[in-house]
Nucleic acid binder design. Structure first.
Lengths: 129, 129
DNA sequence: CTATCTGCAAACGTTTTGCATCTGT
DNA sequence: ACAGATGCAAAACGTTTGCAGATAG
């Protein structure tokens, strides 16, 4: 509770439950996964609240939306600079903690100010091989 | 027509129209964009046919599905190894043709067979700055 | 006290499906 | 001839919205 006060958002019990679910979570959960989990504690929990909370957390930079899955949004509470390695078969996701320091030559940047990059590695995981 | 015969899929007039629309297309169009364009030529064209054709083209490796846009799938007929640079403001997309030869050290690969990677650069484009 | 959040249900945009009919090969 | 494609409408799916009532600060 105390640790979340600094976020400067209204801390409802539902939001706290979502924050606790997300803390340290490496599953890159979808809204539904979050909903189902938090619903155990709050049977009346609604999707609106999940999405509303995720939106609030995104805005304060506490959570990021991942584009890893074409069929649904995934969320990641890990805001550190990291990349993802995805199994082509089972779609499992592994975090990759390394700064690759890729710089895009000016002639390829088309006048853009480059702010950053995100690498998606893909391959076949041990289990699927 | 002849040039598409090698694809080994049934070439209907609708599919040819979609293939022609996609050929050399750098817009990373959504299904709707494709639909709207091809519909001019085929007023009876349906989304089912667009999605069906895209699915067929994906399967033969003629088109790829992009995860660039969280709200809808985008399609890219460019199957060469390339990356994307996206404007955070206007969401415009620029192709980046360069092989960055990023190799993931074994200790970070978690037992995966790495097959490749895709980099999303983000920044602010000239117009938006 | 009041600005904001919750929960519900309805609405939305995208993608998929079932099925009768049609068509490329 | 027939496997497979088309077109239509309905359904499915993830996400967003409107609103009345509840609640954190």
């Amino acid at each position: 509770m105390e640790k979340y006060r600094q976020l400067n958002i209204k801390l409802t019990p539902q939001r706290l439950a979502i924050l606790r679910y997300l803390e340290g979570n490496k599953e890159h959960p979808s809204a539904e996964r979050i909903y189902k989990s938090v619903q155990k504690e709050f049977p009346t929990m609604s999707f609106a609240t999940v999405y509303n909370t995720l939106e609030a957390l995104k805005n304060i930079g506490n959570v990021q939306e991942l584009k890893i899955d074409p069929s649904k949004k995934r969320y990641d509470p890990d805001m550190s600079n990291h990349h993802h390695l995805i199994c082509k078969k089972c779609k499992s996701i592994l975090d990759v903690y390394k700064d690759f320091k890729i710089s895009l030559p000016d002639d390829l940047a088309g006048g853009f100010d480059i702010l950053g990059n995100n690498i998606e590695f893909y391959g076949i995981c041990e289990k699927c091989r």
